[in-house]
């Protein structure tokens, strides 16, 4: 699962001028023909850099995203829910594996990516810096955070980089289980006893603001995003993704008798666009930069896993091994 609002690297005006114009033209022609770029192909430095960054953030989001839900495996109500949640969390970690490999084909070793996660150098989806207080929070994540991620991932799976697209196709297929499972959980609470309904409503109230942040701030068309769109790195704007999410899921939330904590939220029937109170982007920035309720815990748990597992990995490593990046 992953949100928009990718943090792309600032681009120097000269970045493209330094590229070989003939190769660049060939590369762009290939993308225009709808062909995928494969690891051994020539590509502009900027394309490589932005893709590494994007895929890496996506991979980090998968493993960090497993933490707030993983919390609830042992306390999920009943055997079936435990089984399903465990399978879902396993999927998320599996997605991280696929994505790290896709990023590796671009030249950044996995070891370095994992280091950059723990040191805070690279980011992950901001929404996972919030805690899952109750079982209902976990249900909200499974259904709606995954739904948001699917909107993003389906768009990205039509991008231009072969290994990322292949990983995303596999991921999207698995996400459909997450979505249905999450919806199932929310339906049960929302149509259940009064206490269950209240618990679900409280979770919705807690998660709505982070959910609106999920797709990132509105990205006005700039030269920068223009190039990323032309190269099919970025496939849809943050606003487009947010609108699509609202259009698909707000009616499904309302039909369960749940309310959303924004009195301005409605669909403008003339424009066909959803209108809402502008999310608090100052809070968004504050949390991304480390000051959220769970940033510290997420990275501490990650670091602990790295350090306490190190001897096992060391014991298993065969001598005389050399590093080769994955092929595709």
């Amino acid at each position: 699962m992953y949100g928009g609002g990718n943090v792309f690297e600032a681009m120097k005006a000269t970045a493209l001028a330094e590229e070989d114009p003939k190769e660049l033209a060939k590369f762009e022609a290939r993308i225009d023909r709808g062909e995928k770029i494969e690891p051994k192909d020539w590509m502009p430095q900027l394309y490589r850099k932005q893709l590494i960054r994007m895929i890496e953030q996506h991979a980090h989001s998968e493993i960090i995203g497993a933490l707030p839900e993983g919390t609830w495996i042992t306390r999920a109500p009943g055997f079936k829910r435990k089984l399903a949640l465990m399978a879902k969390v396993q999927d998320e970690v599996g997605h991280a594996q696929l994505l790290y490999s896709a990023a590796e084909t671009l030249g950044k070793p996995r070891e370095q990516m994992l280091d950059d996660l723990v040191t805070g150098k690279s980011k992950y989806s901001n929404i996972f810096n919030y805690p899952a207080f109750t079982w209902a929070d976990s249900c909200f994540i499974s259904w709606l955070v995954d739904a948001g991620a699917i909107v993003n991932q389906v768009a990205n799976s039509k991008g231009s980089y072969g290994p990322y697209c292949r990983a995303l196709e596999r991921i999207c297929a698995e996400e459909s289980f997450h979505l249905k499972y999450g919806h199932h959980c929310v339906i049960h609470l929302a149509t259940g006893t009064k206490k269950q309904q209240e618990m679900m409503q409280a979770a919705v109230n807690r998660w709505w603001a982070p959910m609106m942040h999920f797709f990132g701030p509105s990205d006005k068309i700039s030269v920068h995003s223009d190039i990323l769109m032309r190269w099919k790195v970025k496939m849809a704007s943050n606003d487009e993704c947010r609108q699509q999410f609202l259009d698909m899921y707000v009616p499904k939330i309302w039909e369960l008798g749940l309310t959303l904590p924004d009195e301005n939220l409605h669909k403008n029937l003339e424009t066909g666009m959803w209108e809402f109170t502008e999310p608090d982007w100052e809070e968004f920035k504050r949390v991304i930069n480390g000051d959220g309720p769970c940033n510290k815990e997420r990275l501490a748990v990650r670091r602990m896993a790295e350090e306490r597992g190190r001897w096992v990995r060391k014991a298993l490593l065969a001598p005389k091994t050399k590093y080769v990046a994955p092929l595709a």
């Binding site: 280091d115 602990m304 350090e307 091994t321 994955p326």
Partner: peptide
């Protein structure tokens, strides 16, 4: 888990994540 670590994380060695 300690709230603050005394030392920064030592960087991973090559092949900490094994070969492909």
């Amino acid at each position: 888990i300690p709230e603050e670590w005394d030392t920064p994380l030592s960087p991973k060695e090559t092949l900490d994540q094994f070969e492909n």
